[in-house]
Structures are given as C-alpha cells and as structure tokens.
Design a protein around this nucleic acid. Sequence first.
DNA 1: AAGTGGTCTAGACCACCCC
DNA 2: GGGTGGTCTAGACCACTTA
Lengths: 265, 265
Amino acid sequence: MEGSPLQLDGPEPLWRQAAEAILQEIASGKLASGARLPAERDLFTRMSISRVTLRRALQSLVEEGVLTPSHGRGWYVSAKVPKEFPNTLESFSETAKRLGLTPSSDVLRAEEAPATLDEAEELSIAPGTTLFHLERIRRLDQVPVAVDTSFFAVALAPHLGQVDFRTASLFGLLIAAGIDLARAETTIEAHGADSALAQHLDMGVGKSTLVMRQLIVDASGRPLLSSTIRYAGDRYRLRTSFSRTGKFAWPVGAQPVASDRRGAA
Amino acid sequence: MEGSPLQLDGPEPLWRQAAEAILQEIASGKLASGARLPAERDLFTRMSISRVTLRRALQSLVEEGVLTPSHGRGWYVSAKVPKEFPNTLESFSETAKRLGLTPSSDVLRAEEAPATLDEAEELSIAPGTTLFHLERIRRLDQVPVAVDTSFFAVALAPHLGQVDFRTASLFGLLIAAGIDLARAETTIEAHGADSALAQHLDMGVGKSTLVMRQLIVDASGRPLLSSTIRYAGDRYRLRTSFSRTGKFAWPVGAQPVASDRRGAA
DNA sequence: AAGTGGTCTAGACCACCCC
DNA sequence: GGGTGGTCTAGACCACTTA
C-alpha cells in the first residue's frame, strides 16, 4: 500500500465516496483491525480530493465506530468494527437474519379510524383526524415473539389499504413514500402479560413482557407515528449501542440508566 | 435582530463557541421554535468567523436535534428542542432530578477479586486478573428500584477501595480518571425476579423486571467495564431517543423492515 | 432572478507525539 | 526535529426554493 492512486466515481458526494473507499479497504482486509491508516496528506493526494473533504469522510467513519483518530499519531481502525451502527436498534428482520430464522407476521388489524383524544394528543393532531391502525403478531420461524401496535395519520401515506402487511415493512413503505423519519423518542418497560397478549403470544398470563413504545418524529420534532411493541420476555432481547458524541458528557450520573415512575409522561 | 455583531470568546474551538451562541439565542427566546435563522452569510459575518466554521457549528446542532436545514430555504429551529441529547440514556441522577426525587444507594459489594473465566472472556482480559466488583441497590426517595452489578479491571482506576459508593458515581469517577468511555453495547430483556432480587427490591418473586446489560468500550472497541442493572418492572421505565445519522437506513426499532438495506460497509 | 443551503478547494497555522 | 492530526480561512461553484 504505497502511493497507489484511488479512483472515486459516482453521483454521491465526494466525501461519501471517500468513506466508502476506506470501508472497502477495511472489508477487503487491506486495513486490518487496529491498523494505522496512511497519513491524511497521503490519502487525499491519492484520492485527488482536498484535505477538508477527506476529513469529512474520516469523521463520518468515526461516528460509525469504524475509525479512531489519535492526535499526533494517526488514524486507526477500531479493534472491533461494529456490525450494527451505533445508536440504532437492531430491526426485527436483522435479528432474524442474524439468528438464521424466518420472520413473518399475522395481521390482527389494518384499518382506518378517527383519532381518539388520546391518540390525537400523542401525535399532536386534531381529534377525529383519520388514522391508520396496524396491529400485528410478529413471528420468528412461526413462533410468536411480539405484538406490534402502530398508528399514524393516513394523510401521511395514502393507499395502504391494499398492502399485504404479512410481509410488507411499514417503515420501508413510509421511507419509500419520502417521509422523513428522523428520530424516535423511546421508552422501555417490563410488565406482566394480560390475558389477550398472553393468548396472542402463547404464554402464561402475568409472565414478563418487554414493552417498547416509540414516538417517531421528523427532523423538526413533529410527531409522525406511534408504535408500541410487546415482546414475550423469554423470547426476545433488544440490542443497541449508545455512544458519546462530540463534547457531551456521558450518561454521567451514577449509571447509564434511565427511569420513570409509572404514570408519568 | 439585524446586523448586531456577536462576540465570541473562550478557549473552546470557534465552532463550539458559535454553536453555544446560537443555543443562547434560542434559550433566551430570541429564536423561537420553528423560527428561521438568519442566512449563513449574515451569521458568519456577524460572528466574524468563516462560513466553514459556522457550518460546522450548525451541523453539530443538527445532530443534537436543535436545528433543521432546508436546502434553498434556510435553517429552522426544531419544533421541540429535546432536553436530552439523542442516543444517550438518561442517567439515574438526572432522572431523580427531573422527578424531584432523591437518589441513594446501598452498597452490597465493593471489593477486589480475581476474574473468573466468564468475566475474563467478557472483558477480553486474562483470567485471574484482579477485578473490582461493585453491587448496589439504587433507591429513589428510599424506595428500592434497581440492583446494579458492575465489574472492571482494577488496573483501570486504582484507589477505589476507600470511595463511598453510597453517594459516589462510578461513571463520574472513571471519567474523572481520564478513562475514555466511548460506547456501550447494550442488551435489554424482561425477566421474572428471582428470590434474592425480589428481596432486595421488596417485590414478589416472579414479578417482571427489566434487565439491562452493558459492555462499555473505549473508542477502539476495547472492553472496559461490564454492568448489569435489574429494575423492578413496575417502578421503572427506560427512556432514550434514537436518531438516523447520515445517509443510513433507519433505526427501524424492532419494526419489521423487509427492505432491510444494510447501509454501506 | 435572487436568495438560500450543499459541496469542494488550496493553503495556513497550531497542538500533539515520538525520535 | 519531523510527522501527525485539529482548526480555521476566503473564495468558488452547484442545487434547491421562491417569486
């Protein structure tokens, strides 16, 4: 790996292409875990881009946990390049793939209905606004692992009536419709299963379930979609990764923990 | 708000100061939620910095969820500026403060011991390495809400023997010791309480608990600390916020995403 | 067409690390 | 020292929005 020039090409921004090129080098093994990258001045010369652009690429890889800069020494490939990107939850189908299982769904409800007062308040819209409700049992290799209940204003994405949600992805559809899903305000609790949930998930009443509620908002903070997923406690495990970003202190306090009393918020 | 010049000053990087100045304008109400910022060319002139530096500041505020750019139209203050930063968990003491409650701890264990095979494997160190074990009952206004079990190599931070962990913050101590806590690989499950846990938390055996395990790693991915926290299910609720970063497919939080596009890499 | 953000450049100087 | 990343600049051109 000397002065071999790297050719970039594509419609994407230059810095994105540069980042991809570096990821390639890592994936192909030319840059091993823990290895030091060539100096910035080498890299941007070989890629025929400016130093600013190269640094933007490097910075983006830091945020993905792939690279680590060390002032005065160089850029290093992280010891363990994370398969999952930080700060995202592993999706249902990703989990299935990792475990070698087949995901599927039973649709319990897929219909339009006017928003109740509570629903309207949660989405910050007018009561009576037409919502689309979707409720599904999620399965892995036919074993039921969760019940997923979501709703959102139909105005967001019309023509969902004829979609087959046994296989379709709600998020995929919304993104494809050009909807900007920027952030998810999330709470996670543990509860005993009520009888209806226990029946859907084929488990004992009162057994532990993991309840994840998400309010998905766009970049300006406007609520778009409400989602509640109830997992059978002994059949599922959420996985994620929290990062410190920029100059902000970590989950300081005592422990990386969050909490709330019942009923609040 | 016209051409009034903004004075920056401090030891921090210019772009950080610029970001703080903008946050100030928002906090003081000069820039309301949803308001449009002055044009970039105005701002960097008034702040006497370059456009690149200003944009770095603006970009950092986008990542915090404070601003939203709109190509060809301008920069806007987000509708709801989040108090918590995305992708971090609210800490125990932060929660206590928000709820107006007083946090405290009972120390069940605080001692050194050689690493077992399992512990060594989890931290990627040699079995027998001396570890520091810390186990505490966490309380809010004296009500027990969680049992926290952590361990890490004593070599990381010596002299912890005489610390009073009834009030001290483990994370705070480690950060103060200059240890780089960059990321936390996290899993979350729901379980029924065993008898020991039930007794510590003053709850019924078999009742739901939320179990959060975290492996805290440094920027290069090297494991530093293992932490397991078991919450009484009916007394706690985890809160966080997931963001989409850059161009990657979405957090999808446990939603069935059939499209499941692996971003880059 | 005018105004706005989005991308990119070439060059400078500083701070840190290691020999 | 010399090499490395960290910050900052002034200016250019492009793409999108609005009128």
